[in-house]
Design a protein around this nucleic acid. Structure first.
Lengths: 94, 94
DNA sequence: ACTATAGGCAAGTAACCACTTGCCTATCAA
DNA sequence: TTGATAGGCAAGTGGTTACTTGCCTATAGT
């Protein structure tokens, strides 16, 4: 569960999630290209690959293999709960 | 804004927020005592102080001086928006 | 078969982060 | 004023992390 917070702590990873929120099923190279052109992030392919690995471990990204392509998709399920941890105050509910 | 995510990335800081969610206006020593007894976190006073400083910079904690005491209060305002960043998908709204 | 493309593995490096240690300031009570 | 309490400042350290570099595997086109 703490993996989600750690995954979100890095600005590059947040940009990756932004890109996946705009369009699903992106390959590693597509994600790299998007980061470079839209956000001036010129990290190496391996750097982005490692970020994606971390995001997948946190449950924020789901992957699917197809031939030599690996497609990445955003999974918002873990996000729905993290902020609620401190937002819910039982005694203040109507 | 990214400060909020980084602040939430550390488990000890999340415990501090837990404690402040239970009771507001805690001093540094109260927070240290709570972490030690309730969560077996035996960090030094300075360590906790540095965590609180980070949380304050992120806007998650507000402080108030009173004599030699400094009271800490949870501010949930930044939390309300961070998760929404990827949750809102306009085209899927009813 | 050969070449290019998409991606993976692993070691090394530099910066960052959590934490400690030691000393200092300020407030309050006796 | 003296001593105790609450907190702050700053340098140093060990572990983590983001990133690179170099090489390797696998799929697809020609």
């Amino acid at each position: 569960m703490g993996d989600v917070f750690k995954a979100l702590a890095d600005p590059t990873r947040r940009r990756i999630l932004d890109g996946l929120a705009e369009r699903d099923d992106q390959t590693l190279f597509e994600i790299c290209a998007r980061l470079a052109t839209q956000h001036q992030i010129s990290s190496s392919r391996q750097a982005i690959s490692q970020h994606l690995e971390l995001l997948e471990e946190a449950g924020l990204v789901r992957t699917r293999r197809e031939g030599r392509y690996k497609f990445h998709t955003l999974d918002t399920a873990p996000l729905a709960q993290i902020a609620q941890r401190w937002l819910r105050k039982p005694q203040e509910n109507p």
